[in-house]
Design a protein around this nucleic acid. Sequence first.
DNA 1: CGCTAATCTAGAACAAGTTTCAGACTTGCT
DNA 2: AGCAAGTCTGAAACTTGTTCTAGATTAGCG
Lengths: 213, 213
Amino acid sequence: MDRGSWNGDSMTADARPAAPALTERQEARRRRILHASAQLASRGGFEAVQMREVAEAAGVALGTLYRYFPSKIHLLVATMQDQLQHLHTTLRKRPPAGDDAAQRVAETLMRAFRALQREPHLADAMVRALTFADRSVSPEVDTVSRLTTAIILDAMGLEHPTPEQLSAVRVIEHTWHSALITWLSGRASIAQVKIDIETVCRLIDLTAGPDRG
Amino acid sequence: MDRGSWNGDSMTADARPAAPALTERQEARRRRILHASAQLASRGGFEAVQMREVAEAAGVALGTLYRYFPSKIHLLVATMQDQLQHLHTTLRKRPPAGDDAAQRVAETLMRAFRALQREPHLADAMVRALTFADRSVSPEVDTVSRLTTAIILDAMGLEHPTPEQLSAVRVIEHTWHSALITWLSGRASIAQVKIDIETVCRLIDLTAGPDRG
DNA sequence: CGCTAATCTAGAACAAGTTTCAGACTTGCT
DNA sequence: AGCAAGTCTGAAACTTGTTCTAGATTAGCG
């Protein structure tokens, strides 16, 4: 998991055929766009991110915006990648300090959760985009998924997880996303999300335990 | 968990503040709309369900369609309610026959999964609508959620679940929805979904065990 | 039956995502 | 510098969800 360059396709040549090496001004444009997107999302959530407004706020033409991000969903998923990166960096600086893996994962996720709570509208926009994404966004969504997996594995302190453990991690991710959605749409309280996260984290002990029997 | 009519606006006055007792022709219209919706969804998924086309196929004016279902999301969530009802009925006729609760739940969910596999476009439309729904659709989404919970509890054979068990069921639902999405968007194979379902179902043993000790 | 309120219809109009296009600007190359 | 290819801009057009309006139809009721 190399930090820095972002869709670390350094060795896996599968996903993007070729990120065509942006010039400096292009990189700047890209960042302005992502910034505008996050800003608008923070205000009013998914619907407040209107392509015309993003373009204007970023100082680019609408056509250019669409050249960089082929749809609103792509844009918001990219925004989520961006935010997750920040989170991952932050978490690396202060790793969770629980006794066992399950505790550390639960603590990590709840920390992430509180970060999202501070910008509920932004969270709304990103998560809605993520789950609404169709096949055309699969590579980008997959990147987000890998990032999330990396964060969880970090918390578990695992280098070489077994397939069983990977499955547990996937289930934790499922729960995380879905719980987030129910919270965002007001159908679950934060307390309930906490309980669900803690519940699913028990799977970690379950997959770690039998191994040593 | 009362069995019987499920959308039962007829007598159970719980969910909707006042379903204003539709006339026969109105009931017929409503059914034509839902039918048209499912039909179009079966063909081309979420995007193929276009409100003008639904209205035309159902033989109602666009304004009428919006009177019955205030948005495309409402319409598709209602469609999902409808389909879940069918599923629930079917499952009741042939309950799963596993030895322990976890097995039965996993089998039930995989059966539901195979049913959805037969109409992947329909599944796509319904699930995307469900997870994209915002607060304005909360009551309807909640109904779907309760239906799903009922199906799982049925499979477990529980009448009076403990809070702990309810939490496990919620986590299973989270996993179910999210796994469905990853499959629909082509990011996970059916085999992987099966593994994830089985993994999360282990939580059932975990919450059932301590209780009876 | 005849009245009134509610519902339904056809169609225009509006909103926001997406596409398109002609012309201006950059970039890379020789 | 000068040219070719690619990129960016501004604006209009197109699509589909949603809203609105005026007039026709229907339902409930005396």
